[in-house]
Simulated assay, not measured.
Amino acid sequence: MKKSLKIIGIILGILFLSVVGYGAYLYFSVTSTANEIHEPLERDADKSDKRTEKVNVDNQDPLSILIAGVDSSGEAHSGRSDTIIVLTVNPKEESIKMLSIPRDTRTELIGRGTTEKINHAYAWGGIKMTVDTVENFLDVPIDHYVSVNMEGFTSIVDALGGVTVDNEFAFSQSGHQFNEGENVLNGEQALAYSRMRKADSRGDFGRNDRQREIVEAVIQEAAQVSSITRAGDMLDAVGKSVRTDLSLNDMWSVQSNYKEARHSIEQLALTGPSQRIDGLSYVIISEEDRLAASNELREHLELEGASTATAE
């Protein structure tokens, strides 16, 4: 039992880093998985350009994490990042803010020099262009990232034994029926639930809400003792589906120093009208809303000064 508890601790740390983490882990049992998912960001320095100093995890400095859900098939990690969520974690306040950015948001793609949908950044330049583009758009540093192959994500949910969501209204998607109220979902159902938008009057904005709900449901389910017996399946699922710039030692430090922040998770979302430009439909985020979101995250990260930077 003690060994299983240690193993599940690192699995949780791998999945959503500072959001989760319950107990220690057995280092050598998970080293191969940690090495498999470790993909450092190619930066000129070991920190974001939007920070004057590197985050000190041991001092519990607030940090940010980009979660990119990549819409690809099989075990591939290429395609478009149709899920873009920025987490800011303030361990001293014991709180997390979770901001969704609509996939069709029109903005400059940093490193490409074009104005396109924000989810195109991953297709053109992988996680590096995605991080740079999100940093420019929000004027906040992205300290770390987790990318998840959404097709492979189903195996993570199945390894947990399913997740529970509270559905606002009944709908069907991809051959699955989701009733109003509490639903217990397996991996395939969770993926379908998170992808539905056509039956929702809010379209992509409603889909963003369900994506954040699934992320939070995974966090809560992973905390349950019943998940411990599924450690082997989770290690395999994580290795196939997740990539992150954090090393094993980094994950241990984050898990140890930031785990209490999970007790308060505030879900935020950017919204805006759709507009057709050159035959394509974009979501247009107003400067007022963009700056408001930027400054809320900057305050949570305890950064000096309000944002006045433009996104383009």
Rank of each mutant, 00 (worst) to 15 (best):
Gly206Gln: 06
Gly79Met: 07
Tyr22Cys: 07
Glu182Asn: 11
Arg276Pro: 14
Tyr193Gly: 00
Ala311Pro: 14
Thr114Gln: 08
Lys2Arg: 12
Ala293Val: 10
Arg212Tyr: 01
Tyr22Ile: 10
Gln211Met: 04
Ala269Thr: 05
Thr130Trp: 14
Glu296Asp: 12
His300Glu: 10
Gln220Gly: 06
Ala231Pro: 02
Ala231Leu: 00
Ile84Gln: 08
Thr115Arg: 14
Arg112Tyr: 11
Ile214His: 01
Gly125Cys: 03
Val55Gly: 05
Asp166His: 13
Asn90Asp: 14
Met196Val: 03
Ile85Glu: 15
Asp44Lys: 15
Leu66Tyr: 00
Trp252Phe: 08
Lys97Cys: 01
Leu5Cys: 08
Glu299Ala: 01
Ala223Gln: 05
Gly79Trp: 10
Thr33Lys: 03
Met98Ile: 05
Arg210Ser: 00
Lys117His: 14
Gly23Asn: 04
Thr83Leu: 12
Glu116Met: 11
Lys2Ile: 15
Gly79Tyr: 09
Met1Ser: 03
Val30Asn: 00
Ser72Cys: 15
Ala217Gly: 07
Ala237Val: 09
Ala24Glu: 13
Val146Ser: 08
Tyr22Pro: 09
Ser4Gln: 13
Glu213Lys: 07
Ile284Arg: 14
Gly21Leu: 10
Asp158Thr: 11
Ala34Lys: 00
Tyr22Val: 07
Arg103Gln: 05
Asp139Asn: 14
Ala231Trp: 10
Asn179Gly: 12
Gly181Cys: 05
